[in-house]
Amino acid sequence: MTARLLLNIMQVLVVMLFSPLLKGVISRLKAIIQSKRGPSIWQPYYDLYKLFRKDEVISTDASWIFRAAPLVSFAVPLLVTLLIPVLTGFPLTWAFMGDMLGGGFILSLGGFFATLAAMDTASPYGQMGSSRTRMVSFLAEPVLMCVFFVVSLVAGATIPYIVNHAWYMGGKSVIYPSHVLVVIAFFMVILAETGRIPVDNPDGHFELAMIDESKSLEYSGKGFALIKWGGYMKLFVLMTIFMNVLVTPWGLATAVTAPALTLAVLSLLLKMLAGAVLIVIIESTLAKLRLFRVAEFLGMAFVISLLGLITYFIGV
């Protein structure tokens, strides 16, 4: 019992510590592809360190929501971490607290608070950004639903640990037509939800074109650091679900021993590196879509996931 509790905490720590690294690696790889040298992969850590030491400026008209939002968006990915297999293949203490749908709800709670906070200061850019974020995420919702349907049909459950187990131990094949379609649709949703390139430009600093970034425009100091870190963790958590539950359910620790856990951390980092390379390839070859083309991108994801569902039912 205590061992499982400790492991749960360790999973949270791994997500907290390594998520800025993922971001740093992505930026560095992107710079290398653009034949620049790029910032060090530790740059996000320096940024966070700097921001945590800075003073915070908050508008006198801002309400408690503005102060609470950074904490919520920091805490939400950590809560989801409790539900998903990050390091271990066996369920941990809070594994049955919620399923994939629950995780989706928790993540959208973070988005909800960020939206409220962006509207709280009445900055026009914040409001524009929050309405755009809402548009993207409500278009992403049906895709997620279809993905969860297929996953739950195949694995017989929506608890991430059980799904992972079904693919890892239960002899269910990962190479399956419906599975391939669902994986692709889910990846498109991850790109949309974390504000990566075909939907939003994470490096853009032009306020009128921002979608995800504009929500944190009003923040400074510690609040900004928390929001940034929360964003890194959200990407890390979604990539973990993508890799550990859907694409590569192997390489998780099956025993509570130090070497097994070290191996699990290493394999997780390797998977994240593979994910980072995939994201970098996509970001370097595609251009950002115009805002109203986002509906086309996510519509495509929806049709793909729907086909996955139908393919499963036809039994192909």
């Binding site: 094949s173 190479i175 399956y176 037509p177 419906s178 391939v180 379609l181 692709i184 086309e296 495509m300 049709v303 793909i304 086909l307 393919t311 192909v316």
Partner: peptide, 21 residues
């Protein structure tokens, strides 16, 4: 056979992309 299933899924995907490009 598994490979064929995946190829079928990819073919369908590719056709859908052509629908949107």
């Amino acid at each position: 056979l598994k490979l064929l299933g995946v190829l079928g899924a990819l073919l369908l995907l590719e056709t859908l992309f052509m629908l949107a490009v």
